[in-house]
Design a protein around this nucleic acid. Structure first.
Lengths: 148, 148
DNA sequence: ACTTGACTTAGAGTGCGCTCTAGGAACAAA
DNA sequence: TTTGTTCCTAGAGCGCACTCTAAGTCAAGT
């Protein structure tokens, strides 16, 4: 059978190149590996060589990290991926759970941001006011003593 | 002049009550105070009593913290508030700067979330596919050795 | 042959934001 | 008076996610 061989003939990257490409330092890349978030193939001399799929994995880890997933949970996900068995359902569940957490967090952050925006508007109003009258405004966080 | 006196006649809260009301532990409330984020008036026996404005301050600190402002920056803001001088412009600038940071962060998180959502959709597609054929899909993060 | 630079490991150190502990004071209820 | 609760301070400890260091290997360039 003279079919096309899948030698993939892949271009691989050194850890330094991956650091450069992804913005994750080489230190952190090794740390991620030691933490069990991914496994990277080695040359005979022990040096890591990242295939495209490995770089993709690093990037996906980035998505998870930057949305607040703790290392330990990414580790759980990675364990599922590596378990051999088909754990797609479980992995998907894990990601969906995270997705919900993130959506909730984003909404919460937006709420907190609204509180800050309100304060900024208060400042703007106060300063506009001061511009036309000569009045001063005062604000919390300072404090005087109180009766026993 | 028999005007209405502004004795404020205010209801004040103990640290425990504020913890209860705001969800910030008493430990953390003391920590915030030690870190210079706010000043709370005391009774003669040294116990804190939070006025409404102090509770408001705690809540505002919450807005800043939950949107990722570091303690040290909140400290800077608090220092401005307490400086006596009118630092409204500077405080507003600080908050606006933070606001921009948060908006940028939120957008970035959304981008990362999109990457995760894409993966979830990939899982869903793969599982749907598998349901009709009998094929298995495989995924990154696992790894084999590579030639020297 | 030697230097340079990128890689390797194990493990120590850092900064942040809490979180907890120890030891004590003060008051309220039984 | 005893017991229990809540408060106080100073300071130690913790978990997280890096981040860095030391000491060494290896390959290429001069």
């Amino acid at each position: 059978m003279g079919g096309t061989m899948t030698t993939t003939n892949e271009r691989v990257l050194t850890i330094g190149e991956v650091a450069e490409a992804t913005g994750v330092t080489d230190h952190t890349l090794r740390y991620y590996e030691k933490a069990g978030l991914l496994v990277v193939p080695r040359l005979a001399n022990g040096q890591r060589r990242y295939r495209e799929m490995d770089v993709k994995a690093v990037e996906f880890i980035g998505h998870l990290r930057r949305t607040g997933m703790p290392i330990r949970t990414i580790r759980e996900y990675a364990d599922l991926v590596r378990s051999g068995k088909d754990t797609s359902a479980e992995r998907m569940r894990l990601l969906e759970q995270h997705r919900e957490n993130v959506i909730r967090d984003l909404a919460e952050q937006q709420k907190h941001l609204d509180g800050i925006t309100l304060k900024i508007e208060w400042y703007r109003a106060a300063m506009d006011q001061r511009e036309s009258s000569g009045a001063q405004f005062s604000e919390s966080l300072a404090s005087t003593a109180i009766a026993p």
